[in-house]
């Protein structure tokens, strides 16, 4: 659906986006991550044709934007980080204007539907200038969905929302994705990306440093496994028994819980259970600590910075 080939943007000496190749597949939710200034918004602007690339190209629906400008634009919905609205219009008037621009059929019905999705249907005759930041963001989502787009590009879609609003937007994204819509979401709220996205691209200093599913990213980054085990009566004998298992790197014990780090080469969980049982103890709970996206993000970007430093770029 969206493909960038060697996409590069330079502002004078500054390389904002460097040889970026991403591929967003039909029907997926692609999370675009990166620290501030990584080049996420610049990339989104180039995809939308609002900034011209220095090098490389963008293909949407298999075509470059210039090849079929109006048809491509009509099939994309955009929610930007900052809501620039015609504040002298009511929500209804503004959506009506955009509905006419996108030539939406049965505009009134569609306006009622999208405002209903974001729970603003009872405030549609209020001026947008009087909306709170969160309401404006939800309105932006309604505007992005108004013309029934196939692709939605969302830049920080939940940054101004309260937890209830965040859930509303998350539910809409999941529901619309089930309806077949493709999403490209750029966000710094990692937990949201982790919850909603199928695939993630991590951008740092204009370079794509990782692109994979969350599962694969974890697997690639974890060089050790962390197990949290709770037993009924911990003692020194248990600690020694676990430390003696081949593949166990370290054991930390507090009152009832053990934090055990093991290598990723073999699954030592059965050995641990057997060792604990041999000391006359019972395992009450065992769980594997999974790397969060936040940890993965920090790991990847730090690794990348080190790499760049070695290359003499950083």
């Amino acid at each position: 659906m969206i493909q960038t080939e060697g996409l590069t943007k330079r502002f004078g000496q500054l390389v904002a986006v460097d040889n970026l190749n991403i591929h967003v597949e039909k029907g997926e939710i692609y999370g675009f991550l990166g620290p501030n200034g990584a080049g996420k918004t610049t990339t989104a602007m180039m995809i939308l044709g609002l900034l011209k690339p220095t090098e490389g190209k963008v293909k949407i629906f298999g075509k470059e934007l210039q090849e079929d400008y109006f048809n491509i634009k009509r099939r994309i919905g955009v929610l930007s980080e900052f809501q620039y609205l015609y504040e002298d219009l009511t929500a209804y008037e503004c959506l009506r204007f955009f509905g006419e621009l996108y030539q939406v059929d049965d505009i009134d019905k569609r306006i009622t539907h999208v405002l209903g999705l974001v729970n603003l249907d009872n405030r549609k005759h209020e001026l947008l200038g009087g909306y709170s930041k969160g309401m404006k963001q939800k309105f932006g989502m309604a505007r992005a969905l108004l013309h029934d787009p196939e692709i939605l590009i969302l830049d920080e879609p939940v940054s101004s929302l309260d937890p209830y609003g965040v859930k509303e937007i998350r539910d809409i994204i999941m529901e619309e994705n089930r309806n077949g819509r493709t999403f490209l979401i750029s966000s710094h709220i990692l937990s949201e990306i982790e919850r909603t996205c199928n695939r993630i691209g991590i951008l740092n200093r204009g370079r794509l440093v990782a692109e994979d599913t969350m599962e694969n990213l974890r697997r690639r980054l974890e060089d050790e496994v962390e197990l949290h085990i709770e037993i009924d009566a911990p003692n020194e004998a248990v600690t020694k028994a676990i430390q003696g298992i081949n593949g166990v790197i370290s054991v930390d014990a507090d009152e009832k819980q053990y934090v055990i780090k093991t290598s990723t080469e073999r699954d030592v969980r059965p050995d641990i259970v057997r060792a604990i049982a041999a000391t006359g103890n019972v395992v009450v709970e065992m769980r594997r600590h999974e790397m969060s996206l936040e940890e993965a993000f920090v790991t990847i970007t730090e690794k990348n910075i080190s790499l760049l430093a070695k290359e003499g770029v950083a």
């Binding site: 930007s80 900052f82 015609y86 955009f98 621009l101 996108y102 013309h147």
Partner: peptide
């Protein structure tokens, strides 16, 4: 200046 132009150009306006 207001940014509304940017929003227009997200859509079918050249």
């Amino acid at each position: 200046e207001q940014g509304t132009m940017e929003v227009l150009f997200y859509g079918p306006v050249d």
